[in-house]
Nucleic acid binder design. Structure first.
Length: 191
DNA sequence: TATGAGATCAACT
DNA sequence: GTTGATCTCATAC
């Protein structure tokens, strides 16, 4: 079995609906800290929950740039959230990284988060950015170069699909993907 | 176990 | 002035 491939620009230059499920199980590292992606959500400009829905602003400009870059925004005035920019299909779209199963750099993540319980280190979009040290300073950086490191999943996990979390618009779209039964999800999947 | 408030800021009405 | 791709802590059942 070959070493998992580094995810390149071609991986991200596809529809969010292909990239999002394919990210589940992939390795996501930032400055050597991170782990296995266990939860993501797709955001597409055709639906009102997406930041790109109403066109380009200073905040979301990166979403309109080339695929394979990080879009980092401030959520609720407090937290940072990280997305991967995908193929535009007419306008901008991205996949929100919502939860990671910690495998590397756990001591550093514990220090940045201020909690010791591994299950709580990266189980949410705000939590994982705090754990990995991702901020606005990293908005727009390419995902195929340091400090980012993304590698394809070694095997395909059992992927669950559900509705997205914490939104009120287009809340019925089943665009949330995750590893079924993982204890590192921000919330369990209902089926 | 479940619900609610507070923190804090960019975008939108 | 209100809302939101959130999290934590407090208080109530």
């Amino acid at each position: 079995m070959a070493r998992p491939l580094r995810l390149n620009r071609a991986f991200f230059a596809r529809s969010v609906h292909e990239v999002a499920p394919d990210l589940i199980g992939a390795l996501f590292l930032f400055n050597g800290a991170g782990g296995r992606v266990v939860e993501v959500e797709a955001y597409h400009h055709t639906e009102p929950a997406a930041h790109s829905h109403r066109g380009m602003t200073e905040r979301n400009a990166v979403m309109f740039g080339p695929p394979g870059h990080a879009y980092v925004y401030r959520s609720y005035g407090m937290h940072w959230c990280v997305n991967v920019v995908c193929e535009h299909e007419g306008s901008a779209s991205a996949v929100l990284i919502r939860a990671i199963e910690p495998t590397q750099g756990i001591a550093a993540m514990r220090r940045r988060r201020g909690v010791s319980e591994e299950r709580l280190l990266c189980s949410g979009p705000g939590r994982l950015c705090q754990a990995l040290g991702i901020t606005r300073a990293h908005n727009g950086l390419p995902l195929d170069r340091a400090p980012f490191e993304l590698r394809a999943r070694p095997q395909t996990p059992d992927i669950a699909v559900g509705v997205r979390i914490g939104i009120s618009k287009a809340a019925d779209l089943p665009w949330r993907y995750g590893v079924r039964g993982s204890p590192y999800l921000s919330k369990p999947f209902r089926d």
